Simulated scan of single mutants.
Amino acid sequence: MTDAPFHQVAYVVTDLDESVRHWADVLGVGPWSVWTMGPDVVTEALYHGAPARFGFRHALAWSGSVQIELVEPFEGPSIFDDQLTARGPGLNHIGRLADDHAAASAALVERGFTPLQSASFGASGDGRFAYFGSPNGDSIVELIHPPTRRFTPDYIYPVQEG
């Protein structure tokens, strides 16, 4: 299996709206699309192999060819809440796209990665994300299969004219 290049870097934050404004206004990254991903949207959820209900807000923006993701957990157990409890906000994971999500996930497990959390998402319900801990414990990799239809963002910042 040939791995797709990593294209996403994600950070856990304690205040998503404040972080979006900081990244846009101070760091010049944006525009940001912000979504609320509650248990009604995040389905077939697993946390450390067991069924779970979790929710988070997240924002996505591009900086060149790198997608930046900001994540603020708000409900249930999650790797994001785990990080905030253990060490606070900061870098959480790196992500890559996976056309065949099941095969890519199996390949990571075969290489010694540990499944941490996964779910289906999107307006079409056919999107999939899964997080895996690396064999040496120093990183988390996300495999992302985007949905064919996304929900409309809660908001976009800064507001785009035109």
Rank of each mutant, 00 (worst) to 15 (best):
A98H: 02
G55Y: 09
R128T: 13
H93V: 03
Q117A: 10
A102P: 04
S63H: 08
A119H: 05
F121C: 02
P39R: 11
E75Y: 03
T114P: 00
A104W: 00
P115N: 01
E110M: 08
A24I: 10
F54Y: 15
E69P: 05
V71W: 04
M37S: 13
W32R: 06
E110R: 14
A123D: 06
L97N: 08
R57P: 04
T36L: 10
Y47N: 14
S65A: 13
I79Y: 00
A86M: 08
P73D: 03
S120Q: 12
I94R: 07
A123M: 09
V71T: 14
D82K: 03
R96G: 05
V26N: 12
A107Y: 00
S124I: 13
G95I: 05
V41R: 15
L97K: 07
D25F: 06
V34C: 13
S120E: 04
A103Q: 05
A86W: 03
I68V: 14
V109I: 13
L91S: 01
R57F: 07
A106Y: 03
G88Q: 02
H58S: 12
G95K: 04
H58A: 08
A59I: 06
P73T: 08
G127I: 15
L84M: 02
L27Q: 12
I68G: 02
T36S: 13
L60E: 11
V109Y: 02
V26A: 13
L27M: 14
G30V: 10
S120Y: 06
A24H: 06
R128D: 07
A103D: 02
V42F: 08
T43F: 11
A86Y: 01
G90R: 09
G55N: 09
T43R: 15
L108T: 00
D81G: 10
L70E: 04
L97H: 12
P115M: 07
S124Y: 14
W35L: 12
A24N: 09
A130S: 15
E110F: 01
N92C: 09
L70F: 05
P51I: 07
H48S: 13
G125V: 11
A123G: 04
A103R: 05
Q117E: 15
I68L: 15
R53Q: 15
S65E: 10
A45N: 13
V34M: 08
G28S: 12
S65L: 08
S105T: 09
L91Q: 04
D81N: 07
R87M: 06
V34T: 14
